[in-house]
């Protein structure tokens, strides 16, 4: 695959966790780029720091050292409030356990990120319906999460992630809670989003089958990133 202009630039990022007086290094001097429209899989054993790295790129955690630039903005310099605003526009989240709000319908869950925009109600409705159409769940928009299967819930979560047309999609073990069939469906969907809509996807996974859909696989071990590899 040809090299594309980087949309994410990670430079000398380090991160430690504190457990009492003990300091546990999680990421050590990580430097790499993610091209625009790239589908990257981050793999590695448990505790290797891949989720931490994803959280830092998504702007929900803070680096101890280094910089992360996404779409030309150095997110490590943003205040908490600015970072929240930035996330609402630039990041779509896909979680392992879907993280849908149980008291809201599929439609309302997908609409949530749009409440942070200045769109009118009618515009929000149009966006939500389009996102649900992409994940093929328009007929289930009035269903609550508990009325949907795991695969369907994850598709609603994907619709929520793409509804604002974010700069990057971050997915943390998106197939970790799904059966084989649903895993296949979700990965097909993510592949379509990447190939047809040009979405940049950064995915943390343990599942080699899921990683096969990615353009690049980067392995993390004990907080250190290994060399680039193609699936």
């Amino acid at each position: 695959m040809e090299n594309k202009a980087p949309i994410v630039e990670v430079r000398h990022v380090s991160k430690c966790y504190h457990r009492g007086s003990q300091i546990i290094p999680v990421l050590q001097d990580i430097t790499f780029d993610i091209g625009d429209g790239e589908f990257l899989a981050l793999m590695g054993p448990s505790g290797s720091g891949k989720s931490t790295l994803l959280n830092l790129i998504a702007g929900i955690d803070k680096v101890d050292a280094g910089t992360i630039t996404v779409g030309g903005i150095d997110i490590t310099t943003l205040s908490e409030m600015d970072l929240a605003r930035w996330r609402s526009v630039n990041v779509g989240f896909i979680f392992q356990f879907y993280n849908l709000i149980p008291v809201l319908t599929a439609f309302e869950n997908v609409e949530l990120p749009l409440l942070l925009t200045s769109l009118s109600k009618a515009e929000r409705r149009a966006h939500v319906e389009m996102a649900l159409r992409v994940v093929n769940l328009l007929d289930r928009m009035d269903h609550y999460p508990k009325q949907l299967s795991g695969g369907q819930q994850q598709r609603v979560a994907i619709a929520r992630a793409i509804v604002t047309d974010p700069t990057i999609l971050v997915a943390d073990e998106p197939t970790g809670d799904l059966d084989r069939v649903s895993t296949g469906e979700i990965m097909e969907l993510m592949d379509t989003l990447n190939t047809e809509s040009g979405k940049t996807i950064i995915m943390v996974t343990h599942d080699p089958r899921a990683a096969r859909k990615a353009h690049h696989i980067r392995n993390l071990d004990k907080g250190v990133l290994d060399s680039d590899a193609h699936p």
Partner: peptide, 14 residues
């Protein structure tokens, strides 16, 4: 707690 984390991640302020 997870819901709160999700809402915050989506961009809702404290």
């Amino acid at each position: 707690i997870a819901e709160i984390g999700t809402l915050r991640a989506l961009g809702f302020q404290r």
